[in-house]
């Protein structure tokens, strides 16, 4: 196990493996997203209250979930960087940042486009929306900090600390709708009793969520390969490519 971990963590090995996985991940993503879009846009019935506008959910909710999941992944990388000083974790952390920022941006924009017809406003400063906006700033802060420091090994440690500390925001986002009065409604799928969503609406939602997870790995691998090449341009294994 440890040996495998060690091998997977070596840059040339990871570079090769990631390259092999990319076409498969692309195919899987396309299948899942097609099924999810068909289910969400065509097969699922309109909602009893919100009509067809609720279909924004199928991109909004997976984006919002991913915005938090990617951040957790980055915080875990941060701990690995600080404790084990693993090079690959540095690359995964910084490569995740633009992808996570994109998901957060999408969650905010699609939420805003959903809020206008349903709530009557594009934006309010309630706890859920504000904490998600803070998440976007955390992502941008991580990207900015990494760019500002020349020495990438030092930059990785600074960014790791920011990622770990910022992780406090993730449970705040999730529980904001329960701890405080908000305009945003409570959770639908992750509450402890049965999810209160009809199965023909839930299924495409889960398909879209799964496809977004596959997409994250796909985009991450691509970003990591570019980052690896940039950093290790003078090393022997790159010369051999």
């Amino acid at each position: 196990m440890f040996l495998w971990f060690h091998k997977f963590g070596s840059p040339p090995h990871f570079y090769r493996i990631a390259g092999k996985w990319i076409p498969w991940l692309s195919g899987l993503f396309l299948v899942l997203v097609t099924a999810g879009l068909f289910g969400g846009l065509i097969a699922a019935p309109p909602d009893y209250q919100q009509g067809d506008s609720y279909r924004i959910m199928f991109v909004h909710v997976p984006s919002a979930w991913m915005s938090m999941l990617v951040y957790v992944a980055m915080a875990v990388c941060g701990i690995i960087i600080m404790v084990w000083r693993m090079k690959l974790a540095e690359i995964v952390l910084i490569s995740s940042a633009p992808i996570g920022a994109s998901f957060t941006f999408l969650a905010l924009v699609t939420g805003s486009l959903w809020g206008k017809p349903m709530w009557g406003t594009y934006w309010v400063w309630d706890a859920r929306l504000t904490s998600e906006l803070i998440l976007l700033f955390l992502y941008l802060g991580i990207i900015g900090l990494h760019n500002a420091i020349e020495d990438k090994r030092v930059a990785a440690r600074a960014v790791a600390i920011l990622a770990i500390v910022g992780a406090v925001n993730v449970p705040i986002i999730h529980f904001s709708v329960e701890w405080w009065n908000t305009l945003h409604q409570g959770p639908t799928v992750t509450k402890f009793d049965k999810p209160s969503i009809y199965w023909s609406m839930l299924l495409p939602l889960l398909l879209m969520a799964l496809s977004f997870q596959v997409y994250y790995v796909l985009a991450l691998f691509q970003q990591c390969r570019a980052e690896l090449l940039r950093r290790e341009r003078n090393s022997k294994w790159v010369e051999e490519l």
Binding site: Q49, Q50, M118, G120, Q185, I197
Partner: peptide, 26 residues
């Protein structure tokens, strides 16, 4: 000065809502 709607976290088709299933959460 402004009125906003807060919707609930339940999603279902119209037919089910008409049957009153929305009342007791399922």
């Amino acid at each position: 000065e402004e009125v906003l709607a807060k919707h609930d976290e339940n999603y279902m088709p119209q037919e089910l809502a008409d049957m009153g299933i929305g009342e007791e959460k399922y």
